[in-house]
């Protein structure tokens, strides 16, 4: 099965920032969450995949096709909701969708209409009069109506109220059901992808720090508190360690290993607490390279 996208040593240089070399592959049937601080290169990655900017080095393929601007059929396989939504501003949402429909062989008008209804988008109003939330919704419809093989979503739920956000996530779950589609979803709002994402990729300062199955992270990371007398206690598999007297609190990225070690050391009152994916992401991004190994 060809990958939904595959980036090989992709590089984009700016005067004060460099993205890459980036190596990332997304298989169909997978939702990949893309997490990182502001300015880490998430949007640049999206722009590169969509062909909005050209890379300085390396290659990328979409559904097995090279990003050749002169053979642009690969763009029909992509649904894109970017950091900005562009439309014919003086036209209505309806006219804009009508315009888009001419370019995608797999476009379905009933599907577009159903999505508009579900998201409650006013289609007759000129786009320039729509709120940011409605603009994003319109962009979502434009991206989903042709059921593309790859969805590129760059912080798509910003500006959406909780009800619409929930509808939107529902739509994404249904979109994934066939197993042949893939989503690349960059976000700050980790609760969005906490259930949807199959895998997570963390990027910081233009470099990929980690690529793992989300469940791997939530299974292996945990906070452990315990009591143990003595100083200079070295534990394997921990990211942070705080203690006051006999009371210790650690954040472990290898639950089993740390617990085993605690058992050997004879620690008492061992209590473990699960960590949410946002806490884990923060730890990884703060922790530097010793915390987790990237698997590309």
């Amino acid at each position: 099965m060809t990958a939904a996208f595959s980036m090989r040593d992709l590089v984009k240089k700016y005067p004060d920032f460099q993205l890459g070399p980036l190596n990332l592959v997304l298989e169909p049937g997978t939702v990949l969450g893309y997490i990182g601080p502001n300015g880490s290169g998430k949007t640049t990655t999206m722009h590169l995949l969509m062909g909005l900017i050209k890379a300085d080095d390396g290659t990328a393929e979409i559904c097995g096709y090279a990003q050749d601007p002169d053979e642009p059929a690969w763009k029909a396989d992509i649904g894109y909701v970017g950091d900005e939504q562009v439309f014919y501003e003086y036209w209505s949402g309806e006219k804009n969708l009508e315009f888009l429909s001419q370019f995608y062989p797999t476009w379905s008008n009933p599907r577009a209409a159903a999505l508009a209804k579900r998201f409650d988008v006013p289609l007759k109003k000129p786009v320039r009069e729509l709120s940011k939330g409605n603009r994003v919704k319109l962009a979502l419809i434009g991206a989903l109506a042709h059921t593309p093989r790859l969805l590129l979503l760059d912080e798509p739920t910003s500006g959406l109220d909780p009800v619409v956000r929930s509808e939107f996530l529902d739509v994404l779950f249904e979109y994934m059901e066939s197993g042949e589609t893939a989503i690349f979803y960059s976000t700050h709002i980790l609760s969005d992808i906490s259930r949807l994402a199959d895998e997570l990729a963390l990027i910081d300062n233009g470099r990929l720090k980690l690529r793992r199955a989300k469940d791997d992270l939530t299974d292996r990371w945990c906070k452990i508190s315990f009591q143990l007398p003595g100083n200079n206690i070295r534990l394997p598999g921990i990211a942070t360690h705080r203690h006051e007297g006999r009371d210790h609190q650690v954040v472990s990225f290898d639950r089993e290993m740390t617990l085993r070690h605690l058992g050997v050391l004879g620690a008492e009152n061992v209590e473990e607490h699960r960590m949410g994916i946002d806490e884990i992401a923060v730890q990884i991004l703060k922790g530097g390279d010793n915390v987790a190994d990237p698997q590309s």
């Binding site: 939702v31 059901e177 259930r195 949807l196």
Partner: peptide
Amino acid sequence: IRALATEQRVSVITVQR
């Protein structure tokens, strides 16, 4: 796996495991 994942709104990998 996919049907349950969609219905319960969880990731496919979670159901698979």
